[in-house]
């Protein structure tokens, strides 16, 4: 996704969030008081936007503008800096088609797709089988469990799988479907590994990790660094607090942590996963019948802007620190 794409996605999210809370400002002319409008998103006047962003960043560093979204000498409007994922599909609900690389029985196909769609309960992204070549192509062959990240799947040659679920059959335990298939579906939606969050990586003792994975897997230090010790760049992600019970978090043993306590790892989509998904992939447009495919963008309603309120600049509150 290029810079223009990021900006459009971020604007769309802001607009959808405004619609979700019933902001009618732009549709009724933008300024007239409407006693029936209910809760509104209220925006500060322009002169205070920069100051507001500075205060927000000071209060919580994750509110800071993302460096990679800087435009030349300028920086994006703070309203557009509330969410970012590098492989994000965008806020308009989409249905990704799914096909299988090997001959796969109908009941097994349906079971796997049902678990992919566990995320659709909370957000606007869903999966559906196709007899053709799917956006998501699943192999059950060797290589373990993996998936490409988010929109990267569109770059994978059509004769290659985008997701690997080695050995999954109808005999596989239902718990494994929840833990593995839903985890890999999360990657397809653009979610990276939760155990790579800085707060969780900080709990790991590198020397213990090197020894452990060398002994159990034969992994060199570089592989351990890549798999468990390199935190995600906090300026490139936005999300919940690091969550060791997320479905996207691996289980790591207490023998490699500094405090001796394991990083538990998630077994299913948990409430934080669900709420974050609902935020970045809002269902509202799907419920309104607006949806897109990965190849055909949905018609996006004209953006609305929050209601701007203003007062005498002499009444502005000056914060000192």
């Amino acid at each position: 996704m290029d810079e223009t794409g990021y900006m459009k996605a971020l604007r769309d999210i802001a607009r959808i969030a405004g619609e979700a809370v019933g902001d009618q400002a732009s549709s009724d002319g933008g300024g007239a008081f409407d006693a029936d409008a209910g809760c509104r998103v209220m925006a500060l006047p322009d002169r205070l936007q920069t100051k507001a962003a500075e205060v927000a960043a000071k209060e919580n560093p994750t509110n800071a503008p993302l460096q990679e979204l800087a435009l030349g000498d300028g920086v994006l409007d703070p309203l557009q800096l509330t969410i970012y994922t590098g492989r994000y599909w965008g806020p308009v609900p989409k249905t990704l088609t799914v096909s299988f690389m090997e001959a796969t029985a109908a009941d097994l196909r349906a079971r796997i797709v049902e678990h992919l769609n566990a995320w659709a309960k909370y957000g606007g992204m869903s999966f559906t089988q196709t007899s053709g070549t799917g956006d998501v192509r699943i192999s059950r062959g060797p290589g373990g469990y993996w998936s490409y990240l988010g929109t990267d799947i569109k770059l994978i040659p059509a004769n290659r799988q985008t997701m690997n679920l080695q050995g999954f059959t109808m005999s596989t335990d239902e718990k494994e479907y929840r833990r593995v298939v839903r985890h890999e579906a999360g990657h397809t939606l653009g979610f990276p590994h939760e155990h790579m969050r800085q707060a969780l990586v900080n709990r790991i003792d590198p020397e213990k990790a090197y020894e452990y994975f060398k002994r159990t897997q034969g992994w060199p230090k570089e592989m351990v660094d890549q798999q468990v010790l390199t935190p995600l760049d906090p300026t490139k992600i936005i999300g919940t607090e690091a969550d060791q019970d997320s479905i996207m978090c691996y289980q790591l043993p207490g023998s490699i942590t500094k405090d001796g306590k394991p990083i538990r790892g998630g077994l299913d989509i948990n409430p934080l996963d669900a709420s974050f998904t609902a935020t970045i992939y809002p269902k509202i447009l799907r419920d309104q019948g607006v949806a897109g495919t990965t190849t055909e963008a949905a018609e996006v309603p004209v953006p609305r802007t929050p209601t701007v309120v203003d007062w005498d600049p002499q009444e502005d509150v000056v914060l000192t620190s």
Binding site: W146, P192, M223
Partner: peptide
């Protein structure tokens, strides 16, 4: 570009 999936090594 060279693309690498998220998951454990496989080879």
């Amino acid at each position: 570009s060279v693309l690498t999936p998220l998951g454990a090594p496989g080879a």
